[in-house]
Amino acid sequence: MSEIFLMCSERSGSNLITKIFDAHPNVCGPSPSHLAQIIVPNLWKYGNLKDSWELLSKDTLELFELKNSPWRLTLTEQMVADFAAPGDFPSLLSAIYKKERELHGKQHILLKENQIYSYASYIRRYFPDAKYLYMMRDPRDMASSWKQGYAIRGGVVRAARTWKQDQHGYTAMRHEIGADNVPCFSYESLLQQPQQTLQHACSLLNIDFHPDMLNFHKKQETQSSSSVAIDWRNIGSPLMQNNFNTFEKRLTQDEIKFIEYLCWDEMASLGYTPVFERLSESEFIALEAQLSAVEPYEKPEFMTIPEAERERRGKLHRKITEIRDKPHFIDSKV
């Protein structure tokens, strides 16, 4: 059995590729649990994990319950106690992943946990046999999708900054692992040459390609996931082969110029060609200020999302904020 960790920015096809692999007979791809992404970078705040285990277990349970789409695993306090000794969070994570995989009757699990490069040393230490999958998308299309997403906060400025940071982190992590061992492909190639792209990725993961992967949208759990989150609705449809290079219709020229200046070098390294001549630094600074001044934090369209989803997202946001803002746990023995 092996964990496969996905290296992919938000709004770049991360949920799509997860569900494509979930349709494989030997791979399950559940929705993000947020457990590694949120808890691992904040473990230091819990102090001695044996002393704070009750609190950490409670946070783990609550965070797991607030994920966007249900897993087959229903995590309980007793399971947490059975899965790992007090203080052993790596074993708890591993046991959760293993149990979900077993409930699907599969050998592997593909995990979407955002920005894993920020806690890569932890993952590599405690999951030494894990595999990785890196997928990127044109930052202009990614930012366009981000801008149009109802639930994701911010717009083009935040999206472009995130994309740039992510590509730095993921490419560095990929080279540390060994680039030849990490499948790397673009969202665009997945849409245009899906079978060839997936066959190559599977071969590097030592998994046989299966044609069911191209029929991911027919799976009942994928259909259910597409209906529980407004920004996931496309995963319930077949691959949209022409869903790229749409940014020219959806972004303003100023937005495109901003993205291209900010991501110029990264775009060149990944094969994405700018539309405009590069701005001067002073022009970019003025444009950044202009766009930042009008960028919304929470979009008006968020209020059109079904109330149940808004409530769940609100609870998740509050829980994540609580964990990130948690004061350092004081060891009672000190």
Rank of each mutant, 00 (worst) to 15 (best):
A286D: 14
V228H: 06
E281F: 14
I207E: 01
N206W: 00
P211I: 07
Q253V: 15
W264E: 02
Q167A: 10
R174W: 02
L251R: 02
L279V: 10
T222A: 00
P211L: 01
P183N: 08
S269W: 00
I177M: 03
N245E: 11
D166I: 11
Y170F: 14
T246E: 00
E283R: 06
M173R: 01
E188V: 04
T171E: 13
T171D: 06
L287G: 04
H200Q: 09
L262E: 00
L279G: 09
R233C: 04
M267W: 05
F258C: 03
L191V: 11
N245S: 11
G271F: 01
I235F: 12
S237K: 04
I235A: 09
Q167L: 12
N242T: 11
M173T: 12
A229V: 05
E266K: 02
E221N: 15
G178T: 12
G178C: 06
Q253W: 07
G169V: 15
L279F: 09
P238N: 04
W232M: 14
Q199M: 15
E188S: 02
Y187E: 00
N234I: 00
L205Y: 08
S282C: 06
R278I: 05
L279P: 04
M267D: 03
Q253T: 13
K218I: 06
A179G: 14
N242V: 00
E295G: 03
N181A: 08
I285W: 05
S282E: 14
M173K: 04
E288S: 13
L198K: 11
D208Y: 00
F185D: 04
F216R: 09
M267H: 07
W232Y: 10
T273A: 11
H210W: 06
A172C: 13
R233K: 12
Q165W: 05
V228I: 12
Q290T: 09
V294C: 00
L251H: 10
T222G: 04
E188A: 03
Q253F: 02
Q192E: 04
L239S: 04
K164V: 14
F216Q: 08
F284I: 04
D254M: 05
N181K: 07
L191C: 07
P211W: 05
E255L: 03
P211Y: 11
R233N: 15
Q223T: 03
N215Q: 13
S226N: 03
I235P: 10
L270S: 04
Q195E: 15
W264C: 09
L291E: 01
S203G: 12
L191S: 01
I259Y: 08
L239E: 00
C184Y: 07
S227C: 12
N181M: 02
K218V: 10
L191P: 05
H200K: 15
H217E: 09
P238A: 02
S225Q: 07
K249L: 03
H200M: 09
E298Y: 01
N242S: 11
F216P: 07
P238H: 14
V275E: 00
N206E: 05
I256Q: 08
P296Q: 01
N243D: 08
Q253I: 14
F209V: 08
V182T: 01
H217C: 14
